[in-house]
Design a protein around this nucleic acid. Structure first.
Lengths: 122, 122
DNA sequence: CTGTATCCGTAATGATACTG
DNA sequence: CAGTATCATTACGGATACAG
């Protein structure tokens, strides 16, 4: 009995949805923060500029549901919650960081190309 | 004079927008098709299930503007247009394929986690 | 501090029809 | 074949207020 042939090019394959999730802006950046170690809710919010509480919660819940992030509550007052990548979640670090890295290393080049494109249209 | 410190964690940095572009569902899948060689407009549309003409055009225009894809028109009747990754664009193949690959190899695991999560909530 | 719930505007997307 | 233009919808996301 073999695995299903997961294929994100098929719109009805669940892998299409998973691809959407892991390639979302907030997932990429949040995993980028968690890659450096466990973080508290507010720490993540502080490090990812423009991330609202709503989207942070939503993204963390998805990652948790997919078994990629674990959530630990310390019942102090006020309560403290730590998020951490699971073993599975850590396999996301390399591919997602590669994306971040690509962007940083190619931004200038792309910027040049955009200027050229503007001139060509002028 | 050094490069700007591109940082996608900053919401005002242009690299944030570039990250959004290259990590979009359609960009990933279209680059995946073009990774195998130059393709015609309709070929791409056929291979990416659920991709509308509008989004295909829009995504290709962005990739072109960013210097990642080239567009070649053959003025036959009917006209023939070929799209191809540029040298720069080919540097996207590895990171984006890694994403696709991650999804395919982890889908079953994630599926399990989702079922567990459902049970836990029940 | 760490959420949850709700409202609501906008931007992204899909469907459709039409053109060179 | 390879688009463009338009419209309708929706879903994403931000702001706000409130709770444990």
């Amino acid at each position: 009995m073999s695995e299903p042939a997961w294929n994100p090019y098929d719109r009805n394959c669940p892998s299409r949805g998973l691809l959407d999730r892991i390639s979302s802006r907030w997932t990429i950046l949040i995993v980028g923060v968690l890659a450096e170690g466990p973080s508290r809710f507010s720490d993540i919010a502080r490090r990812v500029d423009g991330l609202s509480e709503k989207m942070l919660t939503q993204t963390l819940r998805q990652l948790e549901e997919d078994g990629l992030v674990s959530r630990t509550v310390t019942p102090s007052v006020p309560v403290r919650v730590d998020y951490e990548l699971t073993t599975d979640g850590r396999t996301l670090i390399a591919p997602l960081h590669a994306l971040e890295d690509w962007v940083v290393t190619h931004m200038s080049q792309v910027d040049q190309a955009r200027h050229s494109a503007r001139e060509a249209r002028a």
